[in-house]
Simulated assay, not measured.
Amino acid sequence: MTQAPLPPANLQFDLAREEFVQIAAMLRQETGISLANSKMDLVQGRLARRLRALGLGNFAQYLEIVTDPEAADERRQMVNALTTNLTGFFREAHHFDYLGDTILPEIARTRPAGSSRLRIWSAGCSSGEEPYSIAMTVCAKLPDWQCWDARVLATDIDTNMVATGRAGQYEASRAGTVPESYRKRFLLRLDSGTVQVAEVLRDLVAFRQLNLLGAWPMRGRFNVIFCRNVVIYFDKPTQRTLFDRFADILAPGGWLIVGHSETLFRLSDRFEALGRTIYRKTA
């Protein structure tokens, strides 16, 4: 059987309004992300790559595929294409300063006798720069961290981003925001113009695919949760539910760190604001 020729690389795919509405509804059901009507061009551009890869001629054909109950793999590809993955090492650097200068010393000072457990969750870790920034901070700022039972959990809904983070290789230009002392200690420059994250960090960080709206299989509580520039894509009821779940899984007095444009105001009464999008669990 002769395979149908792929469409020309420059073929433009027109996304009808009703097709956008259907795709937006699917994305919200799968991830909780709400797409405004202004995102129609973004959806058209990102999913056009999937249509070309599949040899399709229009979005109607694509919807036939992703609405098939047996098409879980392509729905995952759709989610990967439509989720935003803007990140960087030590982005919003004050959060890492606070982690290293305030949170970790307090945890070390007040830990129960015989306890050395430290758990930090990077929820919505994208390609991994955030959890590796957390891990660098732990290694540099927590005295005798090697003697601790310390782990950083890094989760994202995008399977491609999880794989990138787990590999721990990045273009060298992306390392410019890493403090110089950390670059020398934790990043190995490769001949290919990339940097490799040190093995000690890759051992400290565990990458997992996770949908924040689904079940959370983690056992035990976290001391700190980073969930930055993620909930901004959810509606208010979903944000309220998510913040409540974060409070449930945080240890007493644990910290929640959110993005620069996010707030818990009128969404949760279980945290106190410490300033600069840093919150502490109170209930």
Rank of each mutant, 00 (worst) to 15 (best):
Ala4Pro: 14
Pro5Tyr: 01
Leu6Pro: 02
Pro7Tyr: 01
Ala9Tyr: 02
Asn10Asp: 15
Asn10Val: 07
Asn10Gly: 09
Gln12Ile: 09
Leu15Ser: 03
Glu18Pro: 05
Glu18His: 14
Phe20Trp: 10
Gln22Phe: 01
Ile23Asp: 03
Ala25His: 04
Thr31Val: 13
Ser34Lys: 01
Asn37Gly: 15
Ser38Ile: 04
Ser38Thr: 14
Leu42Asn: 01
Leu42Trp: 00
Val43Tyr: 00
Ala48Pro: 06
Arg49Gly: 06
Leu54Phe: 08
Phe59Asn: 03
Phe59Gln: 00
Leu63Asp: 13
Asp68Lys: 06
Glu70Asn: 11
Ala71His: 06
Ala71Gly: 07
Ala72Gly: 11
Ala72Cys: 07
Ala72Glu: 15
Arg75Tyr: 05
Arg75Val: 15
Arg76Thr: 11
Gln77His: 10
Met78Pro: 11
Val79Cys: 03
Asn80Asp: 14
Ala81Pro: 07
Leu82Ile: 03
Leu82Cys: 07
Leu86Phe: 11
Gly88Cys: 02
Phe89Asp: 04
Phe89Tyr: 12
Phe90Trp: 14
Phe90Asp: 04
Arg91Ile: 13
Glu92Asn: 14
Glu92Cys: 02
His94Thr: 15
Leu99Trp: 03
Leu99Lys: 01
Arg109Asp: 14
Pro112Asp: 11
Gly114Asp: 05
Ser115Met: 11
Arg119Thr: 06
Arg119Ser: 12
Trp121Ile: 08
Trp121Phe: 05
Trp121Glu: 07
Ser122Arg: 07
Gly124Glu: 04
Ser126Val: 10
Glu130Arg: 10
Glu130Met: 11
Ala140Pro: 12
Asp144Tyr: 02
Ala150Ile: 10
Val152Trp: 06
Leu153Ser: 07
Asp156Phe: 06
Ile157His: 01
Arg166Pro: 04
Ala167Phe: 09
Arg183Trp: 05
Lys184Ser: 14
Leu188Met: 13
Leu188Cys: 12
Asp191Gly: 15
Val195Asn: 11
Val195Gly: 13
Gln196Asp: 08
Val197Met: 12
Glu199Thr: 15
Leu201Cys: 07
Asp203Lys: 15
Asp203Met: 13
Asp203Tyr: 03
Val205Lys: 08
Val205Phe: 05
Arg208Leu: 05
Gln209Phe: 00
Gln209Gly: 03
Asn211Arg: 02
Ala215Ile: 11
Ala215Trp: 01
Trp216Arg: 13
Trp216Gly: 04
Arg219Glu: 13
Arg219Cys: 03
Arg219Met: 09
Val224Pro: 04
Val224Trp: 07
Arg228Ile: 08
Phe234Ser: 11
Asp235Ala: 09
Asp235Trp: 08
Asp235Glu: 14
Asp235Ser: 09
Asp235Tyr: 02
Thr241Pro: 00
Thr241Ile: 04
Thr241Phe: 01
Asp244Val: 00
Ala247Gln: 06
Ile249Ser: 07
Ala251Leu: 10
Ile257His: 08
Gly259Tyr: 03
His260Trp: 00
His260Met: 08
Ser261Trp: 02
Thr263Leu: 02
Phe265Trp: 03
Phe265Gln: 14
Arg266Trp: 04
Arg270Met: 09
Arg270Tyr: 08
Arg276Lys: 15
Ile278Arg: 05
Arg280Glu: 13
Arg280Thr: 10
Lys281Asp: 09
Thr282Asp: 05
